[in-house]
Design a protein around this nucleic acid. Sequence first.
DNA 1: CCTCTTTTGACCTTCTTTGACTAAAGTATA
DNA 2: TATACTTTAGTCAAAGAAGGTCAAAAGAGG
Lengths: 155, 155
Amino acid sequence: MRNMSDIIEEYLKALLADSDGEPVEIKRAYIAEKFDCVPSQLNYVIKTRFTNEHGYLVESKRGGGGYIRITKVETHTKAEYLARLKQMIGTGLSQRNARHIVQSLYENEVITLKEGKIINAALDRESLMIELPYRDQLRAKILLNIIDVILYTEE
Amino acid sequence: MRNMSDIIEEYLKALLADSDGEPVEIKRAYIAEKFDCVPSQLNYVIKTRFTNEHGYLVESKRGGGGYIRITKVETHTKAEYLARLKQMIGTGLSQRNARHIVQSLYENEVITLKEGKIINAALDRESLMIELPYRDQLRAKILLNIIDVILYTEE
DNA sequence: CCTCTTTTGACCTTCTTTGACTAAAGTATA
DNA sequence: TATACTTTAGTCAAAGAAGGTCAAAAGAGG
């Protein structure tokens, strides 16, 4: 017998396949009901099978009218390049290296000129008013986060 | 099923879109009646979706002939608009308000969707791994810097 | 057995809805 | 004019409605 998580995974992927590229929106409680499992199992399935690395984008909202929205994004060209950059960044990043990376993103047409300027502004030591080993860590964290959204944003 | 607050928000924005820049004046009780909700729900919708950060000005009057007037703040020139945002940001900025401002920038076509996502990623508390009063200061500083480059970058 | 994955549930956070109470503005009346 | 009444809108906190987190328990495979 296949396990519940696999069944739910398959179900969600079927929804996505039917949706013709559109995001799929589900109600956590409703799906849990449908498959007779606890709601948090959906979080498990999503966390283990619908991550960024798997090529999915997941958004959600709580409260009345809440939802979980799953989008499939295909980005295999950029993916490896960006993964390499992420590795390069690691846990710390000087302003100089940050500039180089942004330059590279621009030259590879992953970002526009304006996007590059925005990113540089965010990473500038002018913005990041904290002391030095932490500043480079912070810069790395920010750029990592930015690269993720670039990766999972369709133009 | 979408929730009432979203529906009312959409309704009010449609009114504003139709009004050609003019303020829109509503009767709280009348709208509540129309959407079959309690009057104070209008206050909730306004407080969460029509704030200054969102680019709206709300005035009201009680008593006979009372009203709620919503104005979409004109963004005269880009420079003026951005200056106003900068003033609003000041020296500290919560993630929530940052989101509102980015939303406003997008709606006013000052940034693209992707640029918005990049900025949000840079301002996310996930990126800004420092403790709280400082985090809001840092977020403000970064966004201020970004706004400056937007201001001085021609499309 | 040992390890990795899955299942479960208690507890948490966020957003929305509702209603009782309050405040202000207009209107009628002494 | 001062006072009372009516008509609006505002505030705030409680209840409700989702989804999120985390760690313990259970299960599967080697």
